[in-house]
């Protein structure tokens, strides 16, 4: 009789890395569909190109460095799709390719692949593209419905759009971020499949609300405009780069909200979300260090 001698435990929870990434893709679907409905075919092309370049980039990098090709854990696909949804529908296709390769090879691959990077690949790639080619990422295509050729985003003239428009998303903006309703649907999907916990999205959105209000913006409009909701649900909750404990995640969310408000008020770039979350990613190792839990049977925290 041939028996496996693997050690306890002998059962395993159904959630695997691939299943979790599948949940994220499922949750991204409404936003992707909304993006295509609002901006038409170019949005679809861009998303496809960036997913392909991310997946191909990861496969080549892993083969180049002699690792086992792990592309089927869908993490590269998630990175590619999120990056694609961060671009403006009018961005050229090669921008998605450069961004995809930068995310998968430089931000993730060089550090050792899944779980070893310290910045969110899609977000870092978006920042890199924003810094390199600002005009591609800040001139927005108007939605198919409206006729205004390149109207300013709600950030540029906050009073230009009603809250309804902001929520439903027929406003200029990047593919995935515009339709806030789709983002909320995605958020509910992620919560129900227990892929993420509420701590980061809620704390980030609330702190943005509060700090933008303090700095003189209309809080609701501030949260609904730009990529706050999309980023807080999909990008800030990336396991690898956000703190481990719930206490740390709340600190992370509040910090990001504060930075979003500061950068929007004083910074050069209209959209503070990207840099705010990146800065909190950089601070995550320190947050993790000082939000360690008390071990059973000890009075104070274990030594850092």
């Amino acid at each position: 009789m041939k028996l496996h001698l693997t050690p306890a435990p002998h059962v395993h929870s159904p959630q695997t890395t691939r299943a979790l990434m599948g949940n994220v893709l499922l949750a991204l679907a409404p936003c992707a569909v909304a993006g295509v409905v609002i901006f038409g075919a170019p949005a679809l092309v861009l998303m496809a190109v960036s997913v392909l370049s991310a997946v191909a980039g990861e496969a080549c990098w892993q083969r180049l460095t002699g690792q086992k090709v792990r592309v089927n854990d869908l993490s590269a696909a998630v990175t590619g799709l999120i990056l694609g949804m961060n671009l403006s529908p009018r961005a050229p296709w090669w921008l998605a390719v450069v961004g995809g390769l930068f995310a998968v090879v430089l931000v993730k691959g060089l550090f050792g692949g899944l779980g070893d990077n310290f910045l969110n690949p899609a977000l870092a790639a978006r920042a890199f593209l924003l810094v390199s080619w600002p005009r591609y990422l800040t001139t927005w295509a108007a939605p198919l419905a409206a006729d205004a050729v390149s109207g300013a985003t709600p950030l540029a003239n906050p009073s230009g759009y009603t809250l309804g428009q902001l929520f439903l998303g027929n406003i200029p903006g990047s593919i995935g971020e515009v339709c806030k309703a789709a983002v909320l649907v995605g958020f509910v999907i992620l919560l129900c499949t227990k892929t993420i916990t509420w701590h980061i999205p809620v704390s980030l959105t609330l702190s943005t609300l509060v700090f933008c209000g303090l700095l003189g913006y209309n809080p609701i409009a501030a949260v609904l405009s730009g990529g706050v909701l999309f980023a807080s649900v999909f990008m800030a909750t990336d396991y690898v780069t956000c703190p481990m404990s719930t206490k740390g995640q709340l600190v992370y969310g509040v910090g990001a909200g504060l930075l979003i408000a500061l950068i929007r008020k004083f910074g050069l770039y209209p959209e503070g979300v990207t840099f705010a979350i990146l800065l909190m990613n950089v601070a995550t190792p320190l947050i993790d260090r000082y939000t360690k839990r008390r071990v059973y049977g000890y009075e104070k925290e274990a030594k850092a």
Partner: peptide, 20 residues
Amino acid sequence: GIPSIALPAGGFLVLGVLMG
């Protein structure tokens, strides 16, 4: 060209990759 390479961030990345 990629303008951001001229920035300090680009410098870090290029030198790091070249050293590797």
